[in-house]
Design a binder for these strands. Structure first.
Lengths: 206, 206
DNA sequence: TGGTACATGTACCAAGTGGTACGTGCAGTC
DNA sequence: GACTGCACGTACCACTTGGTACATGTACCA
C-alpha cells in the first residue's frame, strides 16, 4: 500500500524465472480461446470472463492488451516450430513422404490453429505490432527442415531450398483453400498433382 | 420533418438505381483507405475524417458499419474478378505464360490490395459475416480461367482443374511469402522451380 | 414561390473499451 | 504474531465506439 506500485509487476520480471503457474495457465487458456474465436475482435473483458477471471488479471500478468496478444502470438509461433521439429527430427532414416506431411497439416483438428495463424499473419502484414514476431519466422524457420526432408527424398541439394520454399507455399496455399472450401477431396487431388510433379522429376534425377 | 424517417433511406434503395455519385465516391475512397490501412481496426469516425466527411454520412450511405465493410469486400472481390477476366480473355491466341502471370501478381503496386485480400480472407475464415462473400468466390472463380490458361499451354484437360487449383495455391502461398519477406528474388526462384516442374511434364506429354 | 426529396452536419446517447486506484486475502519469513 | 509481497477482485476513469435525432442546406419541380 505504501510501496510505489504494488500492482503491475514491472512487466519484465514476472515471466523471467518466477511465476510458472498462474500466468502460464492463463496464457494457455487464452491461446485456446483465441484459436476458437479468433483474435481480431478480442476484448480483455470478454476473454477474462470466458477464462473465469477478471480483465484486471490479464493486465496484471501481461501488462497490456498488446502484451497479451504478443504472448499469444509467441505461443502460436512455438507451436509452429514444434511441428517443424517434429517432422524434421522424427526418424530421419525413413524420410517422411510429402503425402504424410500433407495429411498431418490438413487434419481437421489443426484447423483452428491454422485459422489463427493466417489471421495473425494477415495482421502482421498490415503492420500490427504485436504480430510482427510471426513474420520473421514464418518463412525462414520452415525452409531448412523442409529442405532436409526434400533432400532425403532425392531432391538435388542445389535446388532443395527453392523447392522447400515452393513446398511451403503449396502447403499454405492449399491450406487456405481447404479452410475456405472444406473440400478435402478436391484439395487432396491438387496436392497429389504436386507430388506427382516432383516424383516425375525425381525419376529424371534432376 | 413530418415524414416518418427521412434519414436512413431504407438501406435497400440507395444503391439500386439512384445515387450513382456521392456514395460511389465515398466507397472508392473507403476501399482505397482500407487497402492502405487494413480493415480490422477500422472505425467509422477515423475513416470519415480521413475521407473528409462525417461518420454520419457513412451510416447514411451504407446503413451500418457492417454494411460498409460488406461493400468494401464486394469491391475487392470485383477487382479480383476483373483480374481473372483480364488474364483469361486477354488474347486467347497467345496463351499467357505462367511467368507473365506471376509477374503480374507479384508487382509491388498490387501489394496493398493483396494484403487487404488476405486480411479479409482471414476474417472470413474466422466467420466474420461481412467477409463471408469473399469465401464463396475465393477459389471457384479462379479455377476455370486458370484451367483455361493451363490447357492452352498443353496441360491435359483431364488434369486441368486440379492443376489450376494447385497453381492458385502456389500463387497465393508465394504471395504470402513475398508480402512477408519482400524477397522478390527468392520467391521468384521458387516460382521458377514450379514452372520448371510443369514444363518438364508438358514435354513428357502427361 | 413554395414544397419536397435528398444530402450532409452537429449534438447526443448508451454501451463497451483499455487501463488505473485501491482494497484484501493468503503465503511465507523473521 | 506482525510484516511483506504476490495474486486477485471491485470500482472507477476517460475515451471511443456504432448508431440516432434533428436541423439545415441544396436542388429540382410545380
Amino acid at each position: 500500500m505504501a510501496t510505489g506500485d504494488p500492482t503491475t509487476p514491472d512487466v519484465m520480471t514476472p515471466d523471467a524465472g518466477t511465476a510458472p503457474s498462474a500466468r502460464e495457465r492463463l496464457l494457455d487458456a487464452a491461446v485456446d480461446h483465441a484459436a476458437r474465436h479468433g483474435v481480431s475482435d478480442l476484448s480483455l473483458r470478454q476473454l477474462a470472463t470466458a477464462l473465469g477471471t477478471s480483465h484486471r488479471m490479464l493486465i496484471y500478468h501481461f501488462g497490456s492488451k498488446e502484451g497479451l496478444l504478443t504472448e499469444i502470438v509467441r505461443r502460436v509461433e512455438s507451436r509452429q516450430r514444434a511441428q517443424v521439429a517434429a517432422l524434421a527430427g522424427d526418424d530421419p532414416t525413413s524420410p517422411t513422404s510429402l503425402a504424410e506431411l500433407w495429411d498431418h497439416f490438413a487434419d481437421e483438428s489443426l484447423w483452428p490453429w491454422e485459422r489463427l495463424f493466417f489471421e495473425v499473419y494477415a495482421q502482421a502484414l498490415q503492420g500490427r505490432p504485436h504480430a510482427r514476431g510471426l513474420l520473421d519466422e514464418a518463412i525462414d524457420a520452415w525452409i531448412d527442415p523442409l529442405a532436409e526432408v526434400l533432400v532425403a527424398r532425392g531432391t538435388p541439394p542445389a535446388h532443395a531450398r527453392d523447392d522447400a520454399r515452393l513446398m511451403l507455399a503449396v502447403t499454405r496455399g492449399l491450406l487456405l483453400d481447404l479452410l475456405a472450401t472444406r473440400d478435402r477431396n478436391g484439395v487432396d487431388a491438387a496436392m497429389r498433382r504436386f507430388v506427382a510433379l516432383t516424383d516425375r522429376r525425381r525419376a529424371d534425377r534432376d
